[in-house]
Design a protein around this nucleic acid. Structure first.
Length: 281
DNA sequence: ATGGCAGAAGCATTCTGA
């Protein structure tokens, strides 16, 4: 089962590229970030025509997340909820649409667009750290429910210096600071694995290249888009790849799709024997 | 130190991103 995440930087501008990519790859679940449209303006039809369900949580111009799935996600939730132990005021985070989750194949897929943070001195940086703190307590609650989790999206953090093309230049700065890495580790708490690092231990693998300075052609990138899975799912993980080719498209997103192949056994798929859970095409 | 490139809003230019 193919599970993918892609920051598309505007669903409307990238629509034909996304449809082309789906027709080539046929992902089972595709999580999108930076859709940049309100829910009533999201172009659902091109996806439903291909047999996909669409769940959206968007806003005008900025942010916005969506789940595209071959089977209908259950118990879809938008934004943070049940964060009882969170020391943050959750209300602050509700107007930026950065998180949507739903249950598919017995797994809760949590699609996140983590704030960029701008620079370490910025108010936006504090917002980023606080948002990650809230995400940590959100996951604590999910863990209490005993849910299997796939936490994926644009994290705007390079987990280690292996994930930066020029660590000497960028270490300690935005997306590569100790504060951000500590905040990310506090989210993961050792309960998730970075699916990409199960198979690939070396540097030189990027999911984002700046639009500026010919970064893609020079392969000067960062690995900031991630798929984290519950430890209990690690034995199901068959592969993990970054498809950098769409970054070479005309008018591309600055991010590439990241995907994994999960081999789910019959126990996980029992739910889908109920015909009501399939889309009529 | 700064800009560079791209998208949205909206019509000149600003805001945001990473």
């Amino acid at each position: 089962m193919l599970i993918a995440t892609w920051n598309v930087n505007s669903i409307r501008t990238r629509l034909t590229q996304i449809i082309d990519w789906i027709n080539q790859v046929h992902p089972d679940v595709l999580c999108l970030q930076e859709t940049k449209v309100t829910d009533d303006s999201f172009p659902c039809e091109p996806f439903s025509k291909l047999g996909y369900f669409v769940e959206v949580f968007g806003q005008k111009s900025y942010n916005g997340v969506a789940i595209i799935s071959k089977v209908k996600p259950e118990n879809v939730k938008k934004g943070f909820y049940d964060c009882t132990d969170c020391d943050q005021n959750i209300e602050i985070f509700q107007n930026q649409k950065r998180l949507i989750s739903g249950e598919i194949y017995g797994i809760r897929f949590i699609n996140v667009y983590v704030p960029n943070g701008s620079s370490l001195e910025s108010d936006k940086f504090e917002y980023k750290i606080n948002w990650l703190s809230c995400l940590a307590s959100f996951l604590d609650e999910q863990e209490k429910k005993g849910e299997l989790i796939c936490l994926m999206g644009d994290f705007n953090i390079a987990p280690s210096n292996l994930d930066i093309h020029d660590p000497k230049k960028y270490e300690g700065g935005i997306m590569a600071s100790k504060k951000e890495r500590n905040a990310l580790n506090n989210v993961l708490k050792g309960r998730f694995i970075d699916s990409f690092r199960i198979f690939e231990k070396s540097t030189g693998h990027w999911s984002w290249w700046d639009y500026r300075n010919n970064a893609y052609e020079l392969n000067k990138g960062w690995r900031i888009d991630h798929i984290y899975i519950s430890r209990e799912l690690s034995s199901k993980l068959k592969s993990s790849v970054i498809d950098s080719l769409p970054r070479g498209n005309l008018r591309p997103s600055d991010h590439a799709p990241v995907m994994i192949d999960l081999d789910l056994d019959d126990a996980n798929l029992d739910f889908f024997e109920d015909d009501d859970n399939f889309l009529e095409i």
